[in-house]
């Protein structure tokens, strides 16, 4: 594979500074970065801490109103090549603040986007919370959730044995997400070449025609990455009214 880049966005609910959730996030991103490097992929990472959006999420729940920071976070997730979800587990489910983010984001926000689920908790008894709660939720958003999830309990940080097991699991999950993302990026570009016939596509955009047949094929090649979301307010993507009239 030729040199390419991918962006991984971590959606992390870190409730205190220097939390284990944040530590786990950093380790997963570092592991993904090195997994990318080993196959010639430059991995850019970004961390969104849901704690900073707590009030915005509750406001949106009550009023439907999205703050600019929340809009920016949603957009970052949509544009990401891959997403890592990291949250502490409370009462056998990821903390409600974290799931609220996924419950309020747009449908299909994760389309064609590989997702890695990671959780932290006090005891290993919480270890399936990510599987049972988040996997179906993220699949509903059309995310491609990789098989390996990461769970880190207090034990994993405390003993060298636990630490080794956690490291192995992080490496495994990070490799899965990076290789799946690389595959999807490659496939996405192929799709783009097919959709956007170079002979016609430029002329079409230059003429400003909002043609249905160009749906999804933005000029800057936004397709292929998070390909389920199309910028519906871009005149190039609008469905011509004649089509709406025909039903």
């Amino acid at each position: 594979m030729s040199t390419t880049t991918m962006t991984i966005v971590a959606v992390t609910t870190s409730l205190s500074e220097d939390s284990t959730t944040l530590k786990l996030t950093d380790r997963i991103l570092a592991s993904a970065t090195s997994a990318g490097e080993s196959v010639g992929i430059e991995v850019n990472t970004e961390v969104i801490n849901i704690r900073d959006l707590a009030t915005a999420l509750s406001d949106m729940t009550l009023t439907g109103f999205r703050s600019e920071a929340l809009e920016a976070a949603f957009a970052a997730v949509v544009e990401a090549d891959a997403v890592v979800s990291v949250a502490p587990v409370y009462k056998v489910a990821p903390v409600g603040l974290h799931t609220l983010f996924w419950q309020l984001i747009d449908e299909k926000a994760l389309a064609r986007t590989p997702v890695l689920i990671a959780s932290t908790g006090g005891t290993p008894r919480h270890s399936l919370a990510g599987e049972s709660v988040l996997r179906p939720m993220l699949a509903y958003l059309k995310g491609v959730v990789v098989p390996t999830t990461v769970f880190a309990a207090t034990d994993d940080w405390g003993s060298s044995e636990g630490g080794r097991a956690l490291s192995a699991r992080i490496r495994q999950a990070a490799e899965e997400v990076v290789s799946l993302t690389a595959t999807l990026i490659g496939a996405g570009k192929g799709d783009l070449a097919e959709v956007a016939d170079p002979e016609t596509s430029d002329a079409q955009f230059a003429s400003g025609e909002g043609a249905g047949r160009a749906r999804g094929a933005g000029q800057d090649g936004r397709v292929g990455r998070g390909g389920g979301i199309v910028d519906e307010f871009d005149p190039a993507n609008v469905t011509p009214f004649a089509q709406l009239l025909e039903g």
Binding site: T55, S58, D59, L62, T63, F65, S67, E68
Partner: peptide, 16 residues
Amino acid sequence: PVYGHGPSLEDFSTQT
């Protein structure tokens, strides 16, 4: 009725 008990007046004034 619409936005009560949600965002603060100050936040809402900034954002809308």
